[in-house]
C-alpha cells in the first residue's frame, strides 16, 4: 500500500496510546526504572513511558517471544491424566509502541525462524496480534550500526505505523501497513494533515563497515584463528544473546512434579558452555572461541544463506551489555580487514 503521512501532536499521541489501553489492549512501551535503565514494559498510562531514549537494555522481542512461556500444563494421578494446551486465542491484542527501527525490523528474522518449516502456534498468534508503532531514532551512540547492516534510523521495516519526532515536538506518522491503516481509520480525528516538508530530527549513524565485504570475508573464516583472539576476554555469559532482538534460541524445561506442572520454553544462549553439551558429556563447542564464532557466523553467514536475512539489525545492545566490553562493531571491522 502507499504510505500516507500525517501529523500527530504529543497530546494526541497520548490520547491514541491511552485509547488502546482503555480498549483492553496490552501496550508495551519503553519504561525507565529507578536505576535509570530503559526496558519495554506493559504500561497503564502514556505518562509512564519514556520515548526519548537511545536504546533499551533488552529488546522488544519479548512481545512475541517471552523469556519464559508455558507450552502446556499437565496433571497425572490415579484419576486423571491430562495435558492442557494454552489457548493462543486468549493472547491479548498487543501494541508495541516506541520501538526503534532496529527492533521493528528484527521481527522479520524471528518470524522466519519460528515459521520457517513449522508454524509455531504461540509465536504466530502473538505476532498476528501485534501492531508495531515504531519510532524513528532522533539520537544514537557509538554502539549503533544499523546503517551498516542494511537499515537506517528512520527505516519503516517492521513498523505498522512509523512515528518520527519533529523539531516542534510533534510527530510525523507514516501509515505503513494495513494494520496501521486500521488504527488510523479508528482514530482519524487525532491525526492532522501533513504538508510533507516538516523537519524531522533524525539520528546520524555513520557507516562502520561494508556488509558486502564482511559477507565475502566471513564465508571463508570458519577455520581462521581470529575467533580465539576476539573472544579472549569473553566471560561466557548470556548477556549479549538475551538483550539481542534476533537471538531466538530456547531451552525446554518442565516445572513441577510427576503429578502436575507445566512445560515451558525459556531463553537459552550459545554463549553458555552448557548449551551444546551432549548427554554423553561430550561438548562439540569446547571453548569460548568456538562459541563466539557460532554467534557471529550464525548472524552474518548462516542466516543470510538459509533465510536470506541478516541475523543482526545493528542495535548495538550486545556491546552495551557485555561485562567485558567486547564491541561487535570492532570485531566485525577486524573480520572485514582480515
Amino acid at each position: 500500500m502507499n504510505t500516507e503521512s500525517y501529523i500527530l501532536s504529543e497530546q494526541n499521541l497520548a490520547k491514541l496510546i491511552n485509547g488502546f489501553i482503555e480498549a483492553g489492549k496490552t501496550v508495551f512501551a519503553p519504561f525507565k526504572d529507578k536505576a535509570g535503565k530503559i526496558n519495554f514494559k506493559k504500561i497503564n498510562d502514556f505518562t509512564e513511558c519514556d520515548i526519548h531514549y537511545i536504546q533499551s537494555v533488552f529488546s522488544a522481542k519479548a512481545a512475541v517471544f517471552p523469556p519464559v512461556e508455558k507450552l502446556f500444563e499437565y496433571r497425572n494421578n490415579k484419576f486423571v491424566q491430562e495435558i492442557k494446551d494454552p489457548l493462543p486465542s486468549y493472547f491479548p491484542e498487543t501494541i508495541l509502541f516506541g520501538a526503534h527501527p532496529c527492533d521493528a525490523s528484527a521481527f522479520a528474522v524471528l518470524e522466519t525462524v519460528f515459521t520457517n518449516d513449522y508454524t509455531d502456534a504461540q509465536f504466530s498468534e502473538r505476532k498476528n496480534k501485534l501492531t508495531v508503532l515504531g519510532l524513528s531514532c532522533s539520537t544514537g551512540d557509538e554502539h549503533c550500526f544499523c546503517t551498516s547492516v542494511g537499515s537506517d534510523p528512520s527505516s519503516a521495516k517492521g513498523s505498522d505505523i512509523l512515528l518520527s519526532l519533529l523539531k516542534n515536538g510533534n510527530f510525523v506518522a507514516d501509515i505503513i501497513t494495513e494494520k496501521g491503516k486500521i488504527i488510523f481509520d479508528k482514530s482519524k480525528d487525532l491525526f492532522e494533515q501533513s504538508n510533507g516538508n516538516e523537519e524531522k530530527i533524525t539520528a546520524i549513524i555513520p557507516d562502520k563497515f561494508k556488509i558486502d565485504e564482511l559477507d565475502q570475508k566471513i564465508k571463508n573464516s570458519f577455520e581462521k584463528n581470529i575467533w580465539q583472539a576476539q573472544s579472549m576476554s569473553c566471560l561466557g555469559c548470556g548477556a549479549c544473546a538475551y538483550v539481542c532482538p534476533t537471538c531466538s534460541c530456547y531451552d525446554i524445561q518442565d516445572l513441577g512434579t510427576v503429578y502436575n506442572g507445566s512445560r515451558v520454553r525459556c531463553w537459552d544462549t550459545c554463549g553458555l558452555s552448557q548449551f551444546t553439551v551432549h548427554t554423553s558429556g561430550h561438548n562439540p563447542r569446547e571453548n569460548q572461541g568456538q562459541r563466539w564464532r557460532q554467534r557471529i557466523m550464525h548472524k552474518f553467514n548462516y542466516q543470510p544463506e538459509k533465510i536470506k536475512l541478516l541475523g543482526c539489525v545493528g542495535c548495538g545492545r550486545c556491546s552495551r551489555a557485555c561485562p567485558a566490553g567486547i564491541s561487535i562493531i570492532e570485531n566485525l571491522q577486524k573480520i572485514t580487514k582480515e
Binding site: 561466557g236 548470556g238 538483550v243 531463553w267 553458555l272
Partner: peptide, 10 residues
Amino acid sequence: CFKCYACRAA
C-alpha cells in the same frame, strides 16, 4: 533478572 549469568561469569 533474565538469568544471563553475567554476575556469575564476572
